[in-house]
Each structure stands twice: as C-alpha cells, then as structure tokens.
Computed example of a mutant assay.
Amino acid sequence: MLHAIIDIGSNTIRMAVYQIEGRAFTLLLKRKHTVGLAGYLDHGRLVREGIEKTVKILRGFMEFIETFGIAHVHAFATAALRSATNSRAAVEEITRRTGVVVRIVSGEEEAAYDFIGATQNIEHADGVMMDIGGGSTEIIHYVDHEMRGRWSLPLGSLAIAKAHVGGLLPTAEECRAIRAAAESVLDGVPDVRQLRTRHMVGMGGVLSSASRMHGLLYPDETPRLLRVSNLPAMAEMFGSGASLSEERTAVLLRSAPDRLHTIIPGILIAHTIADTFAAADILYSDSGVREGYIWKEIIGVDENER
C-alpha cells in the first residue's frame, strides 16, 4: 500500500511517499520546502505568515496525493508547532483549510522515532544519537542497542541563529555567543551533560549538510563520518566574519544550499554537544524520524524490538 508521510519541522516541511508491505517499505518519492517555521514564532506565538505558508504547502501536497489516489496520509509536526503558544489553534486551522490531520508529537516521541529509524545504521552497541532540528535537538542514549534515555533540548539551529546571528553567516563573536547558549542549555540538563561516548550517530538536515561539507573539506576521511576534532575548523572557515574565498563559497553552496543561515550554528551545536560527551566521531544516518514513524505507528514495532 502507498503511504504519504508529511513531516512539518522547524526548518523544512517534507512529504515522502512509501510503498509499505508487511514489514518492508520502499521510498518512492520525496519533496521538500524550506520554510523555517521556527523563524515565524513571535514571543512564542506562530504568526499568520507562518500559518499561511504551511497551508499553501500542504494544499500542494494534498493535490499530489489526491491526483495519485494515495489513500493513507500521515502528518506530524515537531518543535516549531509543538512549542508555539497557539499550537492547538494553529493546527486546527491548518487541518480545516487543508484536510490534513496534523498530529503534534512530543519531544520524547520524536526521539523514539529517531532511534527506531536509525537502528539499522548503528554500528556500535553503545552510544548517543543526536538529531539537530531547527527548533530543538533530540538526544538518545543507548546501551547494548537498547534505548536507555531520551531528551528533547530547546536547542535548534534556526532558533539559535535567529537569537544570535545578525547576518547570513555568524561573526566570530556571534559564534562564541552560540557556544555559550548551547553550554547554558546543557547546564540545565545534568543527565545529558554527564553522558560520555566515543561514537555518536547524527540525524537531521543540519548534520546531513555538515556531513557533505566534511566530505568536501576532508576527502580522505570515511564518508558520512564527521571527525569531532574537525568541527571547530569547519565553523571557523565560515564563521569568522571574514570574506570568503571563491573556493570556500563553492564548498558552502555545494554542501548547504538550503541551510546557509543555519549550517554554522548547527555545527557549533554539534561540536558543543559532542565535545561535552568526549566523542571522537559522529556517523550521519539517512534514516530518522519518518522511518521511525513507519516502524512504530504503521508497522507496529517497539523501539527496543528490532
């Protein structure tokens, strides 16, 4: 059967169409719009422009879904809508105007989906997963391939860029402010700050772009494996406030064309967290929240079952 999965995130709104038969599923199509919903929060409230952009995109998705007769539609929203003070009213309006029934998932649910989705790519029995979104970062601690703890931190690449960056790319001073903000969030969650791991698994658009950038800058390294020791240099290349060379501009445009304003804040968040955990590397995983949603909500698999 064909299923459309719509993921309303803090930075992007995505639709993926899968063919699901029993316990097997195949990705058939992906569509993405970079919206930056976290940037449409004004004093915690999702403003009219953010709602209108969401409605327009979902109407386009529904036109596609109806044209091809896709009967099973699943839609969920994460940090931006979850944290909005007018969340309920905004979701009710979006559903009424588009016909898309949107479910707001909690931070713990999002972390569970991340874990289930990425399980197939875990090479090490023990470690920590990290999903850096636009409005939040999900942290999952696992031991012997089983989840032991999960946390949703109010630490997102778009939200922190909005709070601390005045231009498209941060200055050196703004990079220091981002690091300090990330440290402050970690200080507020002692259980997370005390985690230690040699190896991490990373998910989400920010780490996808960071992985591409790492591959361009360090071509001899293992694909999709980010060396934590390389992250400060990557951030400094594009976050010093100095003019970029043509070569560096090309690297930035190739690796993060849709995330020019969030990639450096995201790398700074990643390094702050990974350094706190004493991690040596971060393995980027393509599978994440949408695949985890399929396993848990459609196929019916528990997070520690696979």
Results as ranks from 00 to 15, higher is better:
62 M>P: 12
63 E>T: 11
63 E>V: 10
63 E>S: 13
65 I>P: 10
66 E>V: 05
68 F>S: 15
71 A>F: 04
71 A>D: 10
72 H>C: 06
73 V>D: 08
76 F>R: 09
79 A>I: 05
81 L>T: 14
83 S>G: 12
93 E>N: 02
94 I>E: 06
95 T>Y: 03
95 T>I: 05
99 G>P: 10
99 G>M: 12
99 G>F: 05
100 V>T: 09
101 V>I: 04
102 V>N: 02
102 V>H: 04
103 R>T: 13
104 I>E: 03
104 I>A: 04
107 G>H: 12
109 E>R: 13
110 E>H: 05
112 A>P: 06
113 Y>C: 02
115 F>V: 14
115 F>C: 02
117 G>Y: 06
119 T>D: 05
120 Q>H: 07
120 Q>W: 14
121 N>M: 02
121 N>F: 11
123 E>I: 13
124 H>N: 10
124 H>R: 15
126 D>P: 14
126 D>T: 07
127 G>S: 13
127 G>R: 04
130 M>T: 03
133 G>S: 14
136 S>T: 00
136 S>E: 07
136 S>L: 03
137 T>F: 02
138 E>A: 13
138 E>G: 06
140 I>Q: 04
145 H>Q: 01
145 H>S: 01
147 M>G: 08
149 G>Q: 05
150 R>I: 00
151 W>H: 06
151 W>T: 00
152 S>A: 09
154 P>Q: 07
154 P>T: 00
156 G>T: 01
157 S>V: 01
160 I>R: 04
160 I>E: 03
161 A>D: 02
162 K>G: 13
163 A>M: 06
163 A>F: 00
163 A>N: 10
164 H>E: 11
165 V>T: 01
168 L>N: 09
171 T>Q: 10
171 T>Y: 03
174 E>A: 07
174 E>N: 06
176 R>F: 00
176 R>Q: 07
176 R>P: 04
176 R>S: 09
177 A>Q: 14
177 A>W: 07
179 R>E: 10
180 A>T: 13
181 A>S: 06
182 A>M: 04
184 S>Q: 07
187 D>R: 12
190 P>G: 15
194 Q>T: 05
195 L>T: 00
197 T>K: 02
197 T>D: 11
198 R>K: 15
199 H>R: 15
200 M>N: 13
200 M>G: 09
202 G>W: 00
203 M>S: 12
204 G>M: 05
205 G>R: 09
206 V>G: 04
208 S>G: 11
